[in-house]
């Protein structure tokens, strides 16, 4: 896919997002910034994520599998200001061939934790409609182990549970919701920190989620649960990783790139809990060098309001 096509796709998504807004209730599946939280209320989201990569065409024939259990807790300080914490638990394994031998390397453990705050600075409610815009910002703390060693030595960074670095991120999230459908979207940028003379590439992403009520088709006065079909798009651009050698930064030519995922999903919303599942399928992957391409990411989980 050419760079021009990618730019056009990015501009199209960004243009759509100008006209839509923030997640209030059902909220997107592949991002957390739109989760609704009332004052003094908690919301918990648990997600199981299974990520599979495509066959490696390089001589190393790498086969990377990443599974994660992600726990998110949100708390409403007041109706506009909410705090969130997200802690992942990873199970990663990598099969590869080197010197005509096949090796398996793996790790398990708590990953880096994210803490962020969201402030809703625009809210416009109408009968059975709402439109909200919020800003968010936070950091990722290096709570995961980034120095795990196996019999072959220190694991590569992609296999470590943690990055060892402090990252900072900020963005804007918008929601427009009616009884029939909901649109959530976000733009965000993440500045990666440096550790052990290594800095992962900064990340820019644009996400949009469209949820349409499938059931019940007609609302009655005693309707207390909705079934939504969901379609999301995630455009993610990663800069090259950088190695600091003698105070000189060297780009890793086999890292970074741009990916556009299309994500069909389903969501069942009741008064107290939400069940959800989605599959992120990459429709554009313009990766640098021999960076591993994603085959799919399957996410399923639940959310509880209390």
């Amino acid at each position: 896919m050419s760079t021009v096509t990618l730019r056009v796709a990015a501009v199209m998504i960004a243009s759509i997002m100008v006209f839509v807004t923030i997640g209030v209730n059902a909220a997107a599946i592949t991002f957390n910034t739109a989760l609704p939280v009332a004052k003094g209320a908690f919301v918990i989201r648990e997600q199981l994520m299974v990520r599979r990569f495509k066959n490696d065409l390089s001589p190393m024939d790498r086969d990377l599998n990443v599974n994660a259990l992600i726990s998110v807790l949100g708390y409403g300080i007041n109706a506009k200001f909410a705090l969130f914490a997200a802690v992942p638990y990873f199970d990663k394994s990598l099969d590869l061939t080197a010197m005509s031998q096949q090796f398996t390397r793996s790790t398990r453990g708590v990953g880096d934790s994210k803490l962020f705050a969201r402030y809703t600075f625009l809210q416009h409610d109408e009968r059975s409609k709402t439109f909200r815009i919020a800003g968010f910002g936070g950091f990722k703390a290096p709570t995961g182990n980034d120095n795990k060693i196996d019999r072959l030595g220190r694991l590569p960074l992609t296999l470590q549970s943690g990055s060892g670095a402090w990252d900072y991120f900020a963005g804007i999230v918008m929601t427009y919701q009616t009884l029939d459908y909901q649109i959530d979207s976000q733009l965000s940028y993440s500045q990666k920190g440096t550790t052990n003379n290594f800095r992962a590439g900064n990340e820019a992403r644009a996400d949009i989620s469209f949820q349409y009520r499938l059931s019940p088709q007609q609302l009655s006065s005693d309707t207390h649960s909705f079934l939504y079909c969901v379609l999301e798009a995630n455009l993610i651009n990663l800069n090259n990783n950088r190695l600091l050698v003698n105070n000189n930064a060297i780009n890793d030519a086999n890292s970074g790139g741009t990916t556009l995922y299309l994500t069909p999903g389903i969501q069942y919303v009741t008064m107290k809990y939400i069940l959800e599942a989605a599959v992120q399928v990459p429709v554009i992957q313009n990766l640098n060098g021999s960076a591993l391409a994603t085959d799919y990411i399957f996410t399923t989980g639940f959310r509880v309001n209390f």
Binding site: V24, Q123, D125, S128, T130, Q177, T178, H224, T270, N305
Partner: peptide, 14 residues
């Protein structure tokens, strides 16, 4: 205004 799904209902009831 702004009541758009069952999750809202729970917050209001609470």
């Amino acid at each position: 205004n702004g009541l758009v799904c069952p999750f809202c209902e729970y917050n209001v009831q609470k």
